[in-house]
Amino acid sequence: MNRRLVIPALVAGLLLTSACTDNTAATGDARTLTVNASDTECNVSAAEAPSGTLTFKVTNDGSKINEFYLLADDGLRIVAEIENIGPGLSRDLVLTAPAGNYFTACKPGMVGDGIRGGFTVTDSGEDVGPKGEDAELVAEADAQYASYVRDQVDQLLVKTQTFADLVKARDDDAARALYADARVHWERVETVAESFGDLDPQMDAREADLEAGDEFTGWHRLEKDLWPARAEGYTPMTDEERAAVADRLVADTNTLYDRTRDMTFTASDIANGAKGLLDEVATGKVTGEEEYWSRTDLWDFQANVDGAKVAWEGLRPLLQRKDEALDSQIGQAFADLQTLLDKHRSGDGFVTYDQLSASDVKELADSVNTLSEPLSKMAGVILS
């Protein structure tokens, strides 16, 4: 879940002049930029780069886990992102960017509005994107992934409507039974949903990530009302309040449905989306923070892994041509992680998160990290 990246346009404008400092570094390549992210700054080595394949080499110099984003000119749509950058660690974000205006953003602590700066991609005069056989393979991957996204959103819409009807009817047992199954379809395409920055906070914000004045809506607002046992002193929603939240969730899901009908994806979109889904596992699901009330985190965990695997599989023909060893490493890491997840199955789903031991959680976290490392290299390889 992308936590509160959307900020008002006026605030974004005010941040442009001070948030991301131009501290140009001599990388020897105008398309390779360094980013020094701290708890208070987001220093990008240049404020512009020529169109083509860009690499942002992000180092976290702060004390908090950080994230880095490239946003479209509206300040809402996420073009590409990397999450879960621990203190002292470095990560690369590789993407293909056409000419245009963008924002860069760091997000220390993975909360708040982010430290933003303006960024321009100038027209290099070169064709942006793959060529020849690579272009054909990317086109196939795009068609497959776009179809997958549409199918998942189709199923999400149907199940969300059913879930909302059950919530409004106060058929809580049936609503609780459907909750995790319906959310699977959101989690499988979560990074695509997050790319629409206005929808994600409304549909998937966790209460712990809200700031003063934020409205608590969406899936997790209803989750809390259905599983209030861990909410000390909680006052249940009235029928009217429940209906308002449920109807808004359905309306937002319809908006997501409309926006994904004609979406297309570049190779960097798909590759970075796969890595982004693993980041979602690392920052929320494996820690048990995502589904705080229902404890259904392992359903989300599996769905994020499913979506990442579909993205990788679509790019495999291209990746195998460029680096067969990396492709094999990713495949083995996916298989090993799935074996661990399968240990915690129960019926058609999984055990609840509270049934995991500390060693279970560590084992899963280590396996996620083992997969994350080679998966993070995929974009750089296929765009080379």
Rank of each mutant, 00 (worst) to 15 (best):
N2I: 13
L5P: 11
P8A: 03
L10A: 12
T17F: 12
S18N: 13
S18T: 14
T21Q: 14
T32F: 03
A37H: 07
T40I: 02
E41Q: 11
E41P: 03
N43E: 09
A47P: 02
E48Q: 15
L54I: 05
L70C: 11
L71S: 02
D74F: 00
R77M: 01
V79P: 08
A80Y: 05
E83V: 10
N84A: 07
I85A: 07
G88P: 01
S90W: 09
P98V: 12
G100Y: 05
G100I: 05
N101G: 09
F103P: 02
C106D: 06
C106R: 01
G109T: 03
G114I: 03
G117K: 00
G118C: 03
F119H: 05
T120Q: 09
D127G: 06
V128L: 06
K131V: 07
E133R: 11
D134K: 03
A135D: 02
A135K: 01
V138D: 02
A141P: 01
Y145E: 07
D151Q: 14
D151L: 13
D151E: 15
T160L: 10
T162Y: 08
D171W: 10
D173E: 15
D173C: 11
R176E: 05
Y179W: 11
V184A: 11
H185M: 12
E190Y: 09
V192R: 09
F196I: 10
F196M: 12
G197I: 01
L199D: 10
E207M: 14
E211D: 10
D214L: 03
T217C: 08
L222A: 06
L222I: 09
L226N: 08
W227T: 09
T235K: 04
D239N: 10
D252T: 01
T264D: 14
T264M: 11
A271R: 00
G273L: 02
G273E: 06
D279V: 05
T287Q: 14
E290T: 08
D297L: 07
D297I: 04
K309G: 04
V310W: 00
V310L: 02
W312H: 10
Q320W: 14
L326A: 13
S328A: 15
I330A: 14
G331H: 07
Q332T: 11
F334R: 05
L337M: 04
D342G: 06
T352P: 05
D360A: 09
D360S: 04
E363Q: 13
E363P: 00
L364F: 04
V368S: 14
T370G: 08
L371V: 11
P374M: 09
M378I: 02
S384N: 11
